Each structure stands twice: as structure tokens, then as C-alpha cells.
Amino acid sequence: MDGADDHEPGGPGRATRRIIAVGGRTRVLIVTTFDLDEYAYEGLRAGASGFLLKDARPEELVAGIHAVATGDAVVAPRLTRRLLDAYAHQVLAPADAPAAEDPRLSSLSDREREVLIAIGQGWTNTEIAERLVLTESTVKKHVGRVLAKIGARDRIQAVITAYDAGLVKAKS
């Protein structure tokens, strides 16, 4: 969504918050010409399920729309690493600070917490299954439970939660 008020900082976030506030099953995929990290981060924090650039190939746009429509999430590949590097320090407490338990995590089982950490590290369901020695169908069940318990609409929201809670740290 590229509206007139979306050309100032926070624009995609404001528009996304308005759309999400209406409720329902609407998911937001921001497609913009602005390759600005703060636009992407604000839009995702506001509830967008994806952020792509208008110069994406047609098949990437279609795949992004399909991913968001089915409850998954998508971020333009060239933004992903920059977002993690640039903004993780803002949501993570200093290493020497005592970690307060995020209330969203209190209902997670140990396995669900492991799955949330894996999601936060960007692992696919297949990678989670291989590394945690689970079947993919079991991983999908865990992912669904994690999303429900932490109140996340999709994997991007789960990644933000994992960073906010300090479960995942940016790689230096």
C-alpha cells in the first residue's frame, strides 16, 4: 500500500495499523518503492505480514501474496539481514541486564520455546524438523500452537516476539 501519507516515516506503519484495527482475517503485504529499513521495520511492527519492493520479480510478488494469504510471512531478501543487523539492538536488552520473562512466553512448553527460537533464527519447517528431530507435521502443529499462544498472526510476528523477549540475538 503506497498512499500519500505513506511517504513520510511511519507511513506504512500508520496505514497498516488502520487496516489491522478493522479486524477480521485481513493480512497486509506492503509493496513499496522505498528501500528504507525504518519503513519495513515500522510496517512489520504495526502488523504487516510482509514487506516487498516494487522491483521484485513477478514470481516473487505472486509468491509473497500467496505466502501472506496462507498465513505465512515474507520480507524482501535484501532487507532481511539489514533489518536484523540494524534494529535488533533496539529490541534486545544489554547482555548484562537481567532478563525479565516476557509474559507471552509463560504458556509455552519447552519444545514450543525451542520452536519459537528456531523461528526467530529464520529456520524453515523442514530445518526445524531436521534439527529438532521431529516430523514436519509435528513442527507445523508446534508452530501453530506457538503463534496462538504468543498472539502472533504469522512467523514475522513470532520473529519479532523472539527478539523482543531476548530469545534470539542478532549475529555480529
Rank of each mutant, 00 (worst) to 15 (best):
P98C: 08
D37Q: 08
I160M: 11
A129G: 11
V28W: 04
T32D: 00
D37V: 10
Y163E: 06
H66K: 15
I156S: 06
A95R: 13
Q157S: 14
L116F: 08
E38V: 15
R113V: 04
K140E: 15
S107A: 14
H142K: 10
V143C: 07
A97W: 09
L84N: 07
S109M: 06
A148Y: 10
P77G: 10
I117M: 09
S137D: 14
T126E: 05
A63R: 10
G166E: 02
A93H: 10
R131H: 15
Y39G: 04
L84M: 10
V133Q: 13
L116W: 02
V62K: 11
H142N: 14
A73N: 09
A69W: 11
L53N: 01
I30Q: 00
A100V: 14
K169N: 06
T80W: 06
E114W: 03
L167K: 03
S137Y: 13
I150E: 02
R131Y: 12
E136C: 15
A40W: 01
R27W: 06
A63G: 15
D72R: 13
D37C: 08
A88K: 02
A158I: 02
G64W: 02
Q90H: 13
G122M: 00
A73E: 02
R45A: 11
S137I: 14
S49A: 15
L147Q: 11
E101P: 11
V75Y: 04
D37P: 01
G23F: 11
A129T: 08
I150C: 05
L53W: 00
V91H: 01
D154M: 03
A118H: 01
T135E: 14
Q157I: 03
V74Y: 01
D102P: 07
G71I: 09
R82G: 02
G47P: 03
A158G: 09
I30M: 07
S107V: 03
R25W: 09
R113G: 04
A129P: 05
